[in-house]
Amino acid sequence: MAFSEISTILLATPIAKASTQEFSFWEIMFHGNLFANVVMITVLFLGALSLYLFLERLFFIRRMSKKADPNTMRNIEDFLREGKIETALEYCASQNSPEARILQKGLSRIGRPVSDIVNAMESQGQAEVAHMENRLNLLAAVPSIAPMLGLLGTVIGMILAFFNLSNASESFSPKTLSEGIYTALGQTATGLAVAIPANFFYNLLLTKIDRFILKIQNVSNEFLDIINKPL
C-alpha cells in the first residue's frame, strides 16, 4: 500500500476523544436526595452563622478594648491625692469603657472595707466578661453540631446507596455505587469544613477574652495599690 493511501486512511479515521468529567464539589454537595440536601443546607447555615457570630464578637471586643484611656490610672491617682472622689467618679463615667466602669465601682465603695471594694470590682468585672461572652455559646455549638450532621448525612447516603444497589434489577455497576458513596462522603467533608474554622474562631475569641480578663485584673490590682498607698 502506498504511503499516500495510508495517510488518507489515517486522516479519514475519526479520533475518539476521551471524555473527562470535571470535579465539582458544589454538585457533589447537592447531588443527593431531599434529606441530604436539607442536611447540607443546615450545615451551610451553621457555617454562615459561625462567621457572623465571630465577626460580630471580634469587632465588639476590639471596640471595647480601644475605648480605654491609657492615662486612666494616673488621672484616678491624681484625683484621689487631691481628695476629689466625685470628680474621679465623673471621669470614669465619661470614659464609658469596661476598665472605667470597674474603677467606678471601686471608687463608689471607698470608705468601706477593702473586701467590699474587691467584691464590687470583681462583680463588675464578671458582668463585663459576660457581656463579651454574649452568644459565644452558639459559636461553641457549631463545631459539635456540624460534623454530627455531616456524619448523619453520610450514613443515610450510604444506606440509600446500598439499598438502591440491592434492589437494582440490572447488572452491577461500579459507577452507581461509587456515585452514591462520594455523594454521601461529601456530607462529612462539608461538616468538617464548617466545624474546623468555627472551632478556630471560638478559641481565638476565648484568647482575646482571657487577655481582657488579665487586663482588668491588673487594673483592679493597680487601683487597690493606689487606695492603700499613703496619700
Rank of each mutant, 00 (worst) to 15 (best):
V194S: 09
A193R: 03
D210S: 13
E56T: 13
M148F: 11
I102C: 03
N218E: 12
I41D: 03
G32F: 10
M1Y: 06
T183W: 02
A140N: 00
N228M: 11
F172D: 00
M121R: 02
G157P: 02
T20E: 13
E86P: 02
M40V: 08
D116H: 12
R62L: 13
A127H: 06
D210M: 04
M158K: 01
I196P: 09
Q21H: 13
V142R: 01
I117T: 15
P143H: 04
N167W: 08
I76C: 08
R81D: 05
A161P: 00
F54E: 08
N119Y: 14
L138N: 06
I145G: 06
S171V: 07
L165Q: 04
L177Y: 00
L46Q: 06
L49G: 02
A146L: 05
I216V: 15
I196T: 05
S108R: 14
S144E: 01
L58S: 11
L149S: 08
N33G: 15
R109Q: 15
N71R: 12
R211L: 10
L192I: 10
S65A: 15
N221W: 05
L58D: 07
V39L: 12
I181F: 02
L46K: 03
I145D: 11
A68H: 08
E99Y: 01
N221T: 15
E56S: 13
F200N: 06
N199C: 02
E122F: 11
P147L: 10
Q21D: 09
Y52T: 14
E82C: 06
L138E: 05
L139F: 04
H31C: 07
L11I: 06
M73R: 04
L206H: 08
N33A: 13
V219L: 07
G111T: 09
L205R: 03
T176A: 07
I61T: 04
T183V: 13
A100N: 05
M73L: 15
I209W: 00
F163K: 09
V114P: 01
I85N: 10
S178I: 01
K229L: 12
L139G: 05
L55K: 03
I102W: 07
A2L: 04
T154G: 00
I196W: 11
A130E: 12
S97Q: 03
R211V: 02
W26V: 08
A120Y: 11
F30V: 13
V118P: 02
Y202M: 05
Y182N: 09
I145Q: 07
A161L: 00
V155S: 10
N203Y: 08
N96F: 02
F45E: 02
I159P: 08
N167E: 05
L204A: 11
A189Q: 04
F54M: 11
F54Y: 14
N134Q: 12
S144Y: 10
L107Q: 11
R112L: 10
V155E: 11
Q187H: 09
L103Q: 08
Y182I: 15
F3N: 14
R74P: 00
L34G: 08
Y52A: 15
L231N: 13
F25A: 04
Q126L: 15
S178V: 01
S173T: 03
E82S: 15
L151N: 05
Q126G: 12
M132K: 02
E77Y: 07
K66I: 13
L204C: 01
A146E: 05
R211P: 00
F35W: 12
L136K: 04
N218A: 09
G150S: 14
D69H: 11
N137A: 12
S123D: 13
L231M: 10
N96Q: 11
R63G: 15
T8M: 14
F162K: 02
